[in-house]
């Protein structure tokens, strides 16, 4: 467990020292969400209809674009290789890094989402469902994403490739997250979707760190 907490603290500290990198995904989230009213219309009924999808897709893209920060800089300065060679279980190290990544992106995106939702004419009484879906969904995005980053970290131009690998795997989370928010606006019960999001989270929590470790071992050798 010490490996997990040490890596987690280290990555959080590093993230806090690079404030601009911390803010970039959040700024991206705000800008993309605000593009939709500009491209569609300022009509509040149209906006409300699209709000769940807009918020979820923007959060998903913001997470995806920030994924490289999990391993990229450590790969470039060689510390990732040392971590892989260390005798601590690699999946704990991976889990520590992914948790730190989620705390610095997914969690902050979730906390910001209510403000953006209000700007899209989102009914305030449904904000809790939006926050819950993002809270359950964004860790899964980080976990699945870590597999993709581990596979592409050795490549010089991994960005587009990463999107190609990861986005199809994100589809179930997008479906359950966005539809839960959508149905809660219509006043329907969304416990089912929340349970499914939680199930996907637990599944990826148990499997993704091992896949990421295997991928790191392959790409770093």
């Amino acid at each position: 467990m010490t490996a997990f907490t040490t890596i987690f603290r280290r990555d959080i500290k590093l993230a806090l020292r690079h404030r601009s990198e911390l803010i970039n995904p959040l700024a991206f989230f705000v800008i993309v969400v605000s593009l939709f009213p500009l491209g569609l219309s300022a009509d509040s009924r149209t906006l409300l209809q699209l709000a769940p999808a807009v918020l979820w897709i923007s959060a998903l893209l913001a997470t995806m674009l920030s994924l490289e920060s999990i391993f990229r800089s450590d790969y470039e300065d060689g510390s990732l290789e040392q971590l892989v060679l260390s005798d601590h279980p690699l999946f704990l190290i991976v889990l520590g890094k992914v948790t730190a990544h989620w705390c610095t992106t997914g969690l902050l995106l979730t906390l910001m989402s209510p403000a953006l939702a209000i700007s899209l004419a989102f009914p305030p009484q449904n904000l809790d469902i939006l926050v819950w879906t993002l809270l359950l969904g964004t860790p899964t995005l980080s976990l699945i994403g870590s597999i993709g980053v581990a596979l592409t970290v050795g490549l010089r131009r991994g960005g587009i490739l990463l999107a190609l690998l990861i986005l199809p795997l994100y589809i179930p989370i997008l479906i359950f997250g966005a539809s839960a928010v959508d149905m809660s606006i219509d006043g329907l019960d969304v416990a089912g979707q929340l349970y499914l999001l939680a199930a996907l989270f637990v599944l990826s929590l148990t499997l993704a760190p091992f896949a990421t470790s295997a991928a790191l071992r392959v790409t770093l050798e």
């Binding site: 597999i147 596979l151 690998l165 795997l169 896949a211 295997a214 991928a215 392959v218 790409t219």
Partner: peptide, 8 residues
Amino acid sequence: AAGILAIV
């Protein structure tokens, strides 16, 4: 690497 992706 592609094999791991196929399994995922």
